[in-house]
Design a protein around this nucleic acid. Structure first.
Length: 330
DNA sequence: TAGGCCATCTGGTCCT
DNA sequence: AGGACCAGATGGCCTA
């Protein structure tokens, strides 16, 4: 049964008294079949042109004969109705495409977030909140020129996020990289034996609630560079090229770059063709030795992700270790 | 079952 | 006139 969505019962009665309404209503069911979606809302779609005339008549009816003014309303003929429907279907398709584009952009944003999972996507609103926090946190790092403490970084990222998302982010960031880049400042990371799984990635309960969505191992963690001092070092972005670890075929997310993102080719070198290029301007940013007032960072920071849908046991830790050593052994 | 999230439809508004 | 954008409404799906 088709529903009428109108402002008032009176209006519904008024509209239903119109001769064209039956035809229009019957067409709604066809619409439903065509679009594969309920047409319950705006069931009078395409008939609003007629609403105006109806309301006009109502206003003019006080006292005597309704006077017709303004452009003469065309009767909703079958041809007009069909034209309207065609227009509406086209508009719906455009709107779908538009929303898909929006969702794609949101997906791209998810991929460059500190915590990314294909299996458990952040909601739209949480993605935007996390993005805001992420930008904020990175800005803080740039301004202070210091590395954020792991806990502080997590706290900044989780500000304003829902509890489940906070748990997810906190859990992801406590998986290992945090301790990794904190250790870096204490001592040079020893070159790990590629054959031996990296201890840094052995999951230890961080004392935080478990992520609500599956295992830790199901999420991608974007590793942070040890400090943003490295960003100012032009040689930093080349580390991944020197990495001699076996080529990893997993889903590397776009590596983060201050100046944009780049994609990695199969051999691990940056795919400049696919790189985004936008310059970030940071006025008077002090980066531990970096000079200048407006910094154009053209260096890139490689990001290495733990692939999703891969259990801890199956994950090639030695590759992670090699990659991390390449990053952090500066 | 309620609430959150999402995709879609829809009509209005603005712009080209 | 037609397209882009927007916000409201709706129903489906999923989870606690």
């Amino acid at each position: 049964m088709t529903k009428l969505y109108v402002k008032s019962k009176d209006m519904a009665e008024l509209l239903s008294s119109q001769p064209w309404i039956d035809e229009a209503l019957s067409s709604q069911d066809e619409m439903k079949e065509e679009d594969g979606k309920p047409a319950s809302y705006g069931i009078l779609a395409g008939l609003n042109e007629e609403h105006d005339s109806i309301e006009e008549e109502e206003e003019e009816e006080d006292g005597g004969k309704p006077k017709r003014r303004g452009p003469k309303k065309k009767k909703m003929t079958k041809a007009r109705l069909e034209r309207f429907r065609a227009r509406r279907v086209k508009a719906n398709a455009r709107e779908r495409t538009r929303m898909h584009g929006l969702n794609d952009a949101l997906d791209n944003l998810r991929r460059v977030m500190p915590c990314y999972s294909k299996t458990q996507k952040l909601s739209k609103i949480e993605t935007l909140r996390l993005a805001r926090n992420y930008i904020w946190a990175l800005s803080e790092v740039l301004e202070s020129g210091q590395t954020l403490e792991g806990k502080g970084f997590v706290e900044m990222l989780c500000k304003g996020l829902s509890q489940p998302t906070s748990n997810l982010v906190a859990g992801c960031l406590q998986l290992g990289p945090q301790s990794l880049f904190l250790e870096k400042h204490e001592e040079k990371a020893p070159v790990s034996d590629p054959a031996v799984p990296s201890h840094s990635f052995s999951y230890q309960s961080p004392g935080l609630p478990s992520p609500p969505y599956g295992n830790m191992e199901a999420h991608v963690v974007h590793l942070k560079p040890p400090s943003f001092k490295s960003l100012a070092d032009p040689s930093f972005g080349n580390h991944h090229q020197d990495c001699t670890s076996p080529s990893y075929e997993g889903p590397l997310t776009p590596p983060l770059s201050i100046s944009g993102n780049f994609s990695l080719k199969q051999d691990g070198s940056p795919d400049l063709e696919k790189s985004y290029s936008f310059m970030a301007h940071y006025p008077s940013v002090s980066l531990g030795g970096a000079h200048g007032h407006t910094s154009h960072f053209s260096t890139t920071v490689p990001r290495y992700d733990i692939p999703i849908d891969m259990t801890y046991d199956s994950y090639p830790h030695h590759m992670v270790g090699a990659q991390l050593n390449a990053i952090f052994s500066e």
